[in-house]
Design a binder for these strands. Structure first.
Length: 173
DNA sequence: ACGATGATGAAC
DNA sequence: TTCATCATCGTA
């Protein structure tokens, strides 16, 4: 029996979601095949005041999903070639999302989306089996003391205050 | 250390 | 309409 994580799981503070999401599974069903990977690294982007967040300049056509409903995907293209997968948190109107950066088998956010065939056709879709991409709790328990918190990657442009926030979470080996 | 590669947002 | 920028990765 699948334990799929739906809107209620994501409709809360991104810091709480981020801790709970480590150790959960990202499941991709595509062209008749299914693959599940355990999430081991992520970053959170929270509120319009977060200068590293796409939402810091207010609502735009691109970042619209971040202001939308929890449990929906925000997928965008960076550096002209890499798709980034985010899951939206909190209530509609508050921009907050978590970037899925790595899994047990795949290191790096661009490699993750490439391997799982995730692109912008999934943007704004709900995380659920009918979308072909969703999250599951498969019973793995992560000790909170094993969660390492570091600076986010590639956000120097946000300035010292925001680039140094410990908003990147990883499972320590 | 650097180039690939194209959508985005802000300026003009 | 133009232009700098970018939540990265593989090659050197």
């Amino acid at each position: 029996m699948r334990n799929v994580l739906l809107k209620d799981f994501f409709n809360k503070d991104a810091f709480l979601v981020a801790e709970d999401l480590l150790g959960k599974y990202l499941v991709r069903s595509h062209r008749g095949k299914e693959r599940a990977v355990m999430i081991t690294e992520l970053e959170l982007y929270d509120g319009v005041e977060d200068k590293a967040s796409h939402a810091s300049r207010g609502l735009t056509e691109r970042n619209k999903p971040m202001f939308g409903e929890a449990g929906h995907f925000y997928v965008y293209l960076v550096y002209g070639m890499h798709n980034m997968l985010n899951i939206v948190c909190r209530e509609k109107g508050y921009p907050s999302a978590i970037l899925i950066r790595a899994s047990n088998e795949i290191s790096g956010p661009a490699r993750l989306t490439k391997e799982l065939k995730i692109d912008r056709t999934l943007n704004q879709k709900a995380a659920m089996p009918s979308s072909g991409l969703w999250f599951e709790d498969r019973g793995v328990l992560i000790d909170k003391k094993k969660i390492k918190k570091t600076k986010r990657v590639g956000v120097e442009y946000a300035g010292p205050i925001w680039s140094e926030k410990l908003y990147r979470f990883l499972i320590e080996k």
